Computed example of a mutant assay.
Amino acid sequence: MAPPHNRRTGFSRRAQYGLFLSYVVAGVGLVIGLGLLLLSRFDPPAFSALRVGVAELTTPVASGLNGLRRAATIPSGVTDYFGGAGKIRALRKQLDEERAIVMRARTLNAENRRLRALLHVRDAEATPVIAARLVASTATSTRRYATLNAGSRQGVEPGQSVRGPDGLVGRVLETGPNSARVLLIVDAESIIPVRRARDGLPAIVSGRGDGLLEVRSAASVNAPFRAGDIFVTSGTGGLYPPNIPVARVTRDARDAAEARGFANPDSLDFALVQRVFMPPPPAATPTPAGAAR
């Protein structure tokens, strides 16, 4: 018996079901995206609470995936071990070139210790809040955030600075019970008061949103910047503790220079959460009308 003429070539009910499900998933995703967009536009507090809740649910999963990703880097570590001879030679050459700088730095440190002893000055080191793991970061988005697997239950609060062993990472923006959202220094909304390490020139470091930073002088117009200039936090504004490395200028410029941050959130395992350098004064308690009389 010949097949019916109305049967199309390549007919497959499974393919039809798959195409139908793909349309359904796309439609549901579109509806959810529009709903979230409207919620963030007309009710930001509710959207923030929803975002914190999602972070609480996804942080344990992200912590597990982060551990697997770091375990997968073992073969590259073996390769680096066998190819370490060239790196050792390069490090020895760099050490010879910077020997004079190290000797000059030691001399300056000795002089600083002597002057501090004369002035009876003591540095007050703030006690860190907690060392926590950065489990996720937005490397491709126009906004740059990271997720910390510690929250309000561990003493983390909005405004506290987050730093790694190499330098400043960012500051805490939102907190949940066991997770926190960190605004990275490379985000376009990040602004950090800094000073140049070699002469104390005050400047402002702001994020560009593309993984780099911009340094602008806060003291004079057309201030010269040289490639290699190092900028550290100044403590101005009371948010970030002073003397945390922030950025290094990549090329000579005037007034505004391109720079690269010392800390890379994508390669960090643990970060240190520090208390606010100068917490705001407590709000004044209103005096009752009867007590004023």
Score class of each variant (00 low, 15 high):
S220M: 14
E125G: 11
R89Q: 06
V215A: 07
N66I: 09
P241F: 01
A100F: 03
A105T: 09
G235W: 02
R13I: 14
T285R: 08
A124P: 00
E189Q: 05
A90P: 01
L268I: 08
Y17F: 15
P242Q: 00
Q16Y: 05
A291M: 08
R106Q: 11
A219Y: 07
E111T: 04
F277M: 05
A117R: 01
L37G: 01
R181Q: 08
A110Y: 07
S206L: 08
G64S: 12
R116F: 14
S179L: 05
D266R: 08
R99M: 04
I130Y: 07
P224Y: 09
N6H: 11
R106D: 05
L173T: 10
P224S: 01
I32H: 00
V169A: 12
E98K: 06
R104Q: 12
F82Q: 02
G67N: 15
F82D: 06
P158T: 06
A124V: 13
R293H: 09
R113F: 13
L50I: 01
L168D: 03
P165F: 02
Y23K: 14
L39F: 01
T127P: 01
V121R: 07
S206Q: 10
M278A: 14
G83I: 03
R275Y: 03
M278I: 14
G237C: 06
L119P: 08
A197Y: 12
N66A: 08
S179T: 15
E125P: 01
G53H: 07
R41T: 03
L50V: 07
A292R: 15
V249T: 03
G84F: 03
V273P: 08
P165H: 00
A271C: 11
R144L: 10
T73Y: 02
V121S: 05
R133N: 04
N109Q: 07
R8W: 03
F270Q: 10
P241W: 07
V31F: 10
L68W: 13
N149L: 15
D229A: 04
L134N: 02
V249Q: 02
Y240A: 09
R133S: 13
R41G: 03
R106G: 09
T140A: 14
T287P: 05
V102T: 10
R195H: 12
L201H: 13
P45M: 04
R99S: 06
S217E: 11
A62C: 03
I32M: 15
R113N: 15
R171S: 01
L118D: 13
